[in-house]
Nucleic acid binder design. Sequence first.
DNA 1: CTCTATTATAAGAGTGAGTCTCATTATCAT
DNA 2: ATGATAATGAGACTCACTCTTATAATAGAG
Lengths: 156, 156
Amino acid sequence: MKPNHLPKNPPHDLKQLHEQVTTKLSQANYRYTDNRRRLVETLARYGRPVTLPDIINADPALAQSSIYRNLELLENIGVTCRIAIGSEHAHFELAEQLVGHHHHLICKACGTVQDVHLDLQIESLLEESLAQIASRANFSPLHHTLDLHGRCADCK
Amino acid sequence: MKPNHLPKNPPHDLKQLHEQVTTKLSQANYRYTDNRRRLVETLARYGRPVTLPDIINADPALAQSSIYRNLELLENIGVTCRIAIGSEHAHFELAEQLVGHHHHLICKACGTVQDVHLDLQIESLLEESLAQIASRANFSPLHHTLDLHGRCADCK
DNA sequence: CTCTATTATAAGAGTGAGTCTCATTATCAT
DNA sequence: ATGATAATGAGACTCACTCTTATAATAGAG
Ligand SMILES: [Mn+2]
Ligand SMILES: [Mn+2]
Ligand SMILES: [Zn+2]
Ligand SMILES: [Zn+2]
């Protein structure tokens, strides 16, 4: 029912990603500066939600304040997404509009987050069930988040 | 964000709740002080995840530092739970050990969080699917979180 | 009931992730 | 080129949360 499953574009296709970001930026009358390009590229290279220190570690030339400013700008036009883990740092990744709907494995030990995809059948059953719950509570649903918490392969 | 309000009628199983908390505290060699009793009671009365200002608003006699300290202590013995919404304040509620497994409706406008229960059949299908995903990623699952984001009845 | 060791409290100082300011720099339009 | 606008980045600042520490409450021994 709900078109929550948008086409997934593999993050290894950097050129196509940059084209999509270019379009979104120009539609909002923003420039695709070198700073922004490197930020998007860093997120794409990681391929999983990362913290601000992760980003600076991958590209130390980027300034903290500029990264935060651009992450907010890019989030507003649907390029990136901020996710709230329990960790002291927020995590950032490419938006589902670009990389498709997915979920997260969150390691309680090292804090790393990994993308995973739910079986399409369960995903749609879940959507249906959540829509029911929402209408019962007179709640307007926008999107859901589903995280699995535990210990990653490296930490167990 | 609109102010939060306590429900008029406290649940009539408060006594049982206090008994359970007493047991957990004494097993860990902690005292069930007046501060801790009032904190647990405030969380029970709200019946949904609340922020620290919410708690102080409901019981202004409680000191901020004591609330934080006791919330951490109570979380360590499985009485309360801290949840990370995107909001500037963390949210706290009674642990699932005490109130059962459930999920959350999160309002993007006013920030309030509401407890909801998923259909048992879908819940077990989901568990199964997540277990598969975890084993495929060599990940040791502990628990999952499922939130529906949107606009609550009051805000839409 | 004292006395004492231990636990809990609370005011305020401290921490740090994230935001804001503003002077400088880059880019675009003419 | 010249002026207008957008973007940058260093550092000041905010504020949710933690830590310190002096005081208060409690349990247990005698
Ligand atoms: Mn999903
Ligand atoms: Mn569930
Ligand atoms: Zn790990
Ligand atoms: Zn609302």
